[in-house]
Design a binder for these strands. Structure first.
Lengths: 151, 151
DNA sequence: GTAATTGCAAATCATTTGCTTCGTA
DNA sequence: TACGAAGCAAATGATTTGCAATTAC
């Protein structure tokens, strides 16, 4: 059992939470522990529905916790920053990468050859996955937001 | 004006749509034209709310269209394949990349040094963005789904 | 003791669905 | 003409919010 190992890291995480002003609550520990013991990222929905939380923590509480945990840098949210699917015309044999401004949400297409393409074969071999594809997104603060930030 | 250019490509796109069995409708042309003239990807919500469609096409129609267009490979949907935000513990100074199975949705963490890190400085210089960060996700069919596919 | 956090219930909001009408092929 | 697609309205479902009760510090 990895009990002692996860316990130790859980304590560390809780400490980090408390250091940013959060209180040590049942719900906090449950959410952190759940994520800590999960081998892969979980959606808010999965977390809310998880047996470990279901019935013990109110969904509203969990949603609020996730937001606070991310705001405080304890959690990292994957996927397009604003969680919404984006559609764009698919051009045959042409793969685009994007850079997204985290302030104003503007999206620009990157003019460069994709640095990851070459890695796919290697990753396919290592992972055993087939039909490999990828998405690469950069995030940052765009020039105009950077400008308006510094006055 | 890029009128003639976009007109031409719009016609090509409509042809592609018709070749996969879709009918040439007002809503179809509006959606394609909107995306064609947009410099960056748009969310379903943005598309529904766009002045060019608002009031002319029913939201339900637009949502149905986007789904069909993606199923037929005309559009590409960006962001985590199932459109949901995923949370995971953020470990200081440690950046994870993932590989996602498009059949069963399983997510695995990739054990490799990130090939993109080195590019960030260059991209920052070219784009003028600051505080650069990125997300890289691979998609494919996992070994067990690949196996169950081929019998 | 006091302010933060929870739980519950009600409110939102985007997206989906059913069904009738319309328009393309 | 006939079937696919649109439009409208109602249903769904996830996330959010208000507020009173609870709990950590």
């Amino acid at each position: 059992m990895s009990e002692s190992c996860s316990k130790k890291t859980l304590a560390e995480l809780v400490d980090r939470c408390r250091s940013v002003g959060m209180r040590r609550t049942q719900a906090l520990e449950s959410v952190l522990n759940l994520l800590l013991n999960s081998e892969s990222p979980m959606t808010a929905g999965e977390i809310v529905e998880a047996p470990a939380l279901k019935g013990h923590c109110d969904p509203a509480t969990v949603y609020r916790l996730l937001v606070r945990l991310e705001e405080n840098g304890i959690l990292r949210r994957l996927g397009l920053r604003d969680r919404a699917a984006h559609y764009t015309i698919r051009h045959a044999h042409h793969h685009d990468d994007y850079i997204v401004c985290t302030k104003c949400g503007s999206i620009e297409e990157l003019e460069m050859e994709c640095p990851v393409e070459a890695l796919e074969a290697e990753i396919a071999k290592k992972s055993g996955f087939t039909h490999l594809d990828h998405e690469l997104e950069f995030f940052g603060v765009c020039p105009s937001c950077t400008a308006s930030d510094s006055h």
